[in-house]
Design a protein around this nucleic acid. Structure first.
Length: 280
DNA sequence: GCCGAATGCCCAA
DNA sequence: TGGGCCTTCGGCG
């Protein structure tokens, strides 16, 4: 379930559960045996999150960089934990809590300098207090793709995945195929604002829910994986956009060819209350 | 038991 | 642009 909110939630949880302790780190599966050997019995200082990436910072400066990819997951146990499944890539065992990592795309050791170099490739992380929208705006304007593709480009913005992309574009009435360069600054600011609020809510809830509780249990999103738009009940279009499913209600988000201007009503309280700058 | 899907992303052509 | 990576889970028989 890894979009940025999951990663930040894990950083908070793992800092609370494991930081300050010397951890027994093992790789039952064997594939990260070298990583485990470098940090086992060292003190974990903190866990940092940037976009969809985690960095476990150990005393002495070594980091363990984890990227969950599509399949990666952590499982949490009270120590002592049961024997690990054979697929467990890394087990971090503290006095109170043990966590198992499985299926991750990346689990590697790196230095502080390595982490810094790595992060240069990523755009600002919407969930960090020091995030600078200006940087994302500049990078966005250099993209020749549609806004839908650009939002998933982690070198533009870090932390947005397929669900939040669909939902944030929907509530702002923006079609995924609108050219990124045609997005107005006001539209960009509104999207940024929506994404920050959705992601923060996701960290709190430990799940993605962009529609309030007035709707049914299967209705936690406006358009993502919905057959019909929860706002206007029109058919939700689903299509392949660069290898990922895109979802849009083309009534609430008119395709760029059909709407020459950015004038659109906003679709829910996730969008900015102030829409005067988008009226023309 | 097998198949497909999943909130990601890299790399070869 | 298409396939591969990697794991779990639910649906289907």
């Amino acid at each position: 379930m890894p979009e940025g909110h999951t990663i930040h939630r894990l950083a908070l949880d793992h800092t609370r559960d494991l930081a300050g302790e010397r951890l027994a780190v093992t790789s039952p599966q064997g594939r990260a045996a070298d990583v485990a050997a470098r940090v086992t019995d060292r003190r974990l200082l903190r866990v940092e999150a940037w976009g969809k990436h985690l960095f476990y910072v150990f005393q002495g400066g070594t980091r363990v960089h984890v990227h969950l990819g599509l399949f990666g997951r952590f499982r949490r146990f009270r120590s002592p934990a049961p024997p690990p499944r054979p697929t467990v890539r890394l087990r971090l065992e503290g006095a109170r809590v043990t966590v198992d990592l499985v299926g991750a795309t990346v689990s590697e050791a790196m230095s502080a300098a390595g982490q810094r170099r790595f992060l240069e490739r990523l755009g600002p992380d919407l969930l960090r207090d020091d995030a600078r929208p200006e940087r994302a705006w500049e990078r966005l304007r250099s993209r020749r793709t549609g806004i839908g593709r650009a939002l998933l480009d982690q070198s533009v913005l870090a932390g947005v995945g397929n669900v939040y992309r669909a939902e944030a574009l929907f509530v702002n009435g923006v079609h995924p195929e609108l050219s990124a360069r045609d997005l107005t600054r006001a539209q960009f600011d509104a999207l940024w604002d929506t994404l920050v609020r959705m992601l923060r809510q996701g960290v709190k809830d430990r799940r993605i829910r962009t529609v309030d509780g007035a709707h049914g249990p299967g209705e936690r999103t406006w358009v993502y994986k919905q057959p019909r738009c929860l706002r206007c009940r029109s058919h939700v279009r689903r299509w392949d956009l660069g290898g990922r499913w895109a979802y849009a209600c083309e009534t609430c988000q008119p395709p760029p060819a059909a709407s020459s201007g950015p004038a659109r009503a906003t679709n829910s309280s996730w969008a900015r209350k102030n829409s005067s700058d988008r009226s023309k």
